[in-house]
């Protein structure tokens, strides 16, 4: 597991993907931070994190698109799959590498808010809640990305497929918000929507149900990825 994690992490930075991701992520985070807080004279964090969430959905697949598709294309997966490690350990190693990069970026950029301390009263609990939510959602996106990557040899299809699934999760919330609030389907849609769940964190509530929701969705995709490999063996 650790071997795969280390190799993956290193591979991001022997190629360009790691640097491209870092540059884009940090630049966009910086710009969004300046616009939503400093330039609009506000210490409100909700707009920043909402925009960052949408942005994350688009750039995070950059990190996951190669994870399995590249191994399959280069036939290196035969090495990994015939090595004495379990499938869950392999998938977890693959998960951890992009996650560490993403989590590092998220924590780092969230420190920007400390710049506001001299000028405004910062709600640290809310900030913490939002960072936790971002970290959880990032985990979900990465799990989705790994799953799609395990389905194809083509990196581009993997990235587009991942974005499509993430958008579908957004879309559920959007459709839900159009429905009357007492309609049962609205309840279901809201419960499934990544975005609606996120709003509770933005509004400053630390919602245990949402926490479990993110972990569960992540776990489902994690499990699906393992299943893809299991199925292929028996295919």
């Amino acid at each position: 597991m650790l071997a795969i994690f280390k190799r993956e992490l290193k591979a991001y930075f022997t190629g360009v993907i790691g640097y491209v991701f870092l540059v884009i992520y940090l630049a966009v985070a910086g710009i969004l931070f300046s616009y939503t807080t400093m330039m609009s004279m506000s210490s409100d964090m909700s707009l920043y994190y909402t925009l960052m969430l949408i942005f994350t959905a688009i750039v995070l697949p950059l990190l996951t698109m190669k994870s399995f598709s590249e191994e399959r294309k280069m036939k290196t997966e035969q090495l990994v799959l015939t090595a004495p490690i379990s499938l869950p350990a392999m998938v977890f190693g693959k998960f951890l590498a992009p996650y560490v990069i993403y989590a590092g970026c998220t924590v780092l950029t969230s420190l920007y808010f400390l710049l506001l301390v001299p000028y405004a009263e910062l709600k640290f609990a809310v900030l913490l809640g939002e960072v936790v939510a971002m970290l959880l959602i990032g985990g979900v996106f990465i799990a989705i990305g790994l799953f799609v990557s395990s389905l194809t040899e083509n990196q581009l299809s993997a990235a587009i497929g991942t974005i499509a699934i993430i958008l579908a999760f957004f879309g559920i919330g959007l459709v839900g918000s159009l429905l009357p609030s007492n309609y049962w389907l609205r309840f279901v849609f809201d419960a499934l929507s990544i975005f609606t769940r996120f709003e509770t964190f933005i509004n400053g509530y630390f919602d245990l149900a949402s926490l479990l929701y993110y972990i569960s969705v992540g776990a489902v995709f994690f499990w699906l990825t393992i299943r893809v490999y299991d199925r292929r063996r028996f295919g």
């Binding site: 591979a11 280069m74 036939k75 090495l79």
Partner: peptide, 11 residues
């Protein structure tokens, strides 16, 4: 195991 194509990482 050495598969048909050596499972090496080019980078």
């Amino acid at each position: 195991f050495l598969p048909e194509q050596p499972p090496v990482y080019p980078e």
